[in-house]
Simulated assay, not measured.
Amino acid sequence: MGMVGARAKKGKRYYGRSRERRRRLAPWLILLAILLLAVPVVLRVPDVVQRALHPLRYEDQIRAAAAENGLEPAFVAGVIYVESRYDPDVRSSQGAYGLMQVLPQTATFISERSGITGDYRDPGTNVRMGAWYLSYLLGRYDGNEALALAAYNSGEGQVDSWLAEGRSLPEGIPFEETRDYVTNAAEARDTYAEIYGSNLDRDAR
Rank of each mutant, 00 (worst) to 15 (best):
M3I: 06
M3G: 07
M3T: 06
M3K: 08
V4M: 14
R7T: 03
A8D: 09
G11M: 11
G11Y: 00
K12L: 12
R13S: 13
R17Q: 09
S18M: 14
A26N: 05
A26R: 13
L29S: 01
L32Y: 04
A33D: 08
A33P: 01
I34E: 04
L35Q: 13
L36W: 04
L37Q: 08
A38L: 14
P46E: 12
V49N: 02
Q50G: 12
Q50V: 09
L53I: 06
L53S: 11
L53W: 11
L53P: 01
H54I: 02
P55Q: 12
P55H: 13
P55S: 13
L56F: 10
L56A: 09
L56V: 08
L56G: 10
I62R: 00
A65C: 11
A65F: 02
A65M: 08
A66S: 15
A66P: 07
A67N: 03
E68Y: 01
N69P: 03
G70F: 03
G70N: 00
E72H: 03
P73D: 10
F75L: 15
F75Q: 10
V76A: 01
V79K: 10
V79A: 11
I80M: 12
I80R: 10
I80T: 10
S84K: 00
D89A: 05
V90L: 09
S92T: 09
S92I: 05
S92A: 01
Q94M: 13
A96Y: 08
Y97S: 06
Q101H: 14
V102K: 04
P104E: 06
A107L: 04
T108M: 08
I110L: 05
E112T: 09
S114Q: 02
I116Q: 02
T117D: 08
T117R: 14
G118N: 01
R121H: 01
G124E: 05
T125N: 02
N126P: 02
V127W: 07
G130K: 00
G130P: 00
G130W: 03
G130N: 00
L134R: 00
S135H: 06
S135C: 03
Y136D: 12
L137M: 14
L137D: 12
L138A: 02
G139V: 01
R140Y: 12
R140H: 11
D142I: 06
D142T: 09
N144E: 13
E145G: 05
A146I: 12
A146F: 11
L149H: 12
A150F: 04
A150H: 04
Y152N: 10
Y152C: 11
N153L: 06
G155M: 13
G155I: 13
E156N: 09
G157R: 07
Q158T: 15
Q158F: 10
Q158C: 04
D160E: 15
E165T: 04
G166Q: 09
P170S: 10
P174H: 14
E176K: 14
E176S: 13
E177G: 11
R179H: 08
R179A: 06
D180A: 15
D180P: 03
D180N: 15
V182K: 04
T183C: 05
T183V: 14
N184Q: 14
A185G: 11
A186G: 10
E187G: 02
A188Q: 04
R189P: 00
D190T: 12
T191H: 07
Y192G: 07
Y192P: 05
A193N: 07
I195S: 13
G197A: 13
L200G: 06
D201F: 02
A204P: 05
A204W: 09
R205I: 02
